[in-house]
């Protein structure tokens, strides 16, 4: 099997091992489903506050998975092996990002459906909310690769990681929330798609460059 294939499969298996990938989904569900409990069932209030809260929770769920993404590889020597293998590090980083999105991003997007309904979103809007979460989490992962690589050698680098990554999470959050509240949906989708493609194209390249420096 190709280097991409084996890396993707291994990362997916490691993410699911011991239910590790369930934690961000549980966090996402828990954080968002507390909103109607805390705010009361009033429809207009929930429809206004729901979309931004869902997107902030999604961003934080993805961010929680980033800290150990490359740090573990750096500490246990796996990063050296990735650097010494013939396939370019960019491809391996891309495979890790793809596995992270399949393990976290896709389930988050699907979880978005029951959450949207609980937060009083119109039912006909649920499919576009799920699709926007799928695109938005791909953008989060793309940008997140860079932050995770830059902070791989920093002990307890979670705070630094948040400082680097959260400002870059802003565009998907802004336009994702506008899909969820039904404003300028077509334009918002175009920008979300751009964020996802841009993140997935540039993230692996920038992350690989950062990792090469960290390995020294």
């Amino acid at each position: 099997m190709s280097a991409f294939g084996v890396t993707f499969r291994r990362e997916l298996a490691l993410l699911w091992a011991g239910g590790g990938a369930l934690a961000p989904i549980g966090y996402f569900l828990g954080a968002t489903l507390l909103v109607p409990l805390a705010m009361g069932p009033e429809r207009t209030l929930l429809q206004a506050a729901g979309p931004p809260l869902v997107w902030i929770a999604a961003a934080l769920s993805v961010m929680g998975m980033l800290e150990r993404l490359f740090q573990a590889d750096l500490e246990d020597g796996s990063l050296d092996q990735m650097l010494l293998s013939a396939p370019p590090l960019e491809l391996i980083v891309f495979a890790k990002g793809a596995a992270l999105w399949v393990a976290i991003g896709l389930p988050l997007a699907l979880t978005g459906a029951p959450i949207a309904i609980a937060l009083q979103a119109p039912v006909e809007r649920v499919p576009s909310i799920v699709a926007s979460l799928a695109l938005g989490t791909a953008g989060f992962v793309g940008v997140g690769l860079i932050g995770a690589a830059l902070t791989a050698s920093v002990k307890r680098g979670g705070v630094l990681l948040a400082l680097i990554v959260l400002p870059l999470f802003a565009p998907p959050i802004i336009f994702g929330a506008s899909v969820a509240s039904g404003e300028d949906v077509a334009a918002a989708f175009a920008i979300l798609g751009g964020c996802a493609l841009g993140g997935l194209a540039l993230g692996p390249i920038a992350a690989a460059a950062a990792l090469r420096l960290q390995a020294e």
Partner: peptide, 21 residues
């Protein structure tokens, strides 16, 4: 550092390296 993952099996490591290298 042995470059091993605690949760992956011995066999999984061999297959991973075969694909990577």
């Amino acid at each position: 550092a042995n470059a091993l993952k605690r949760e992956a099996s011995v066999r999984a490591h061999l297959h991973y390296w075969a694909g990577l290298f």
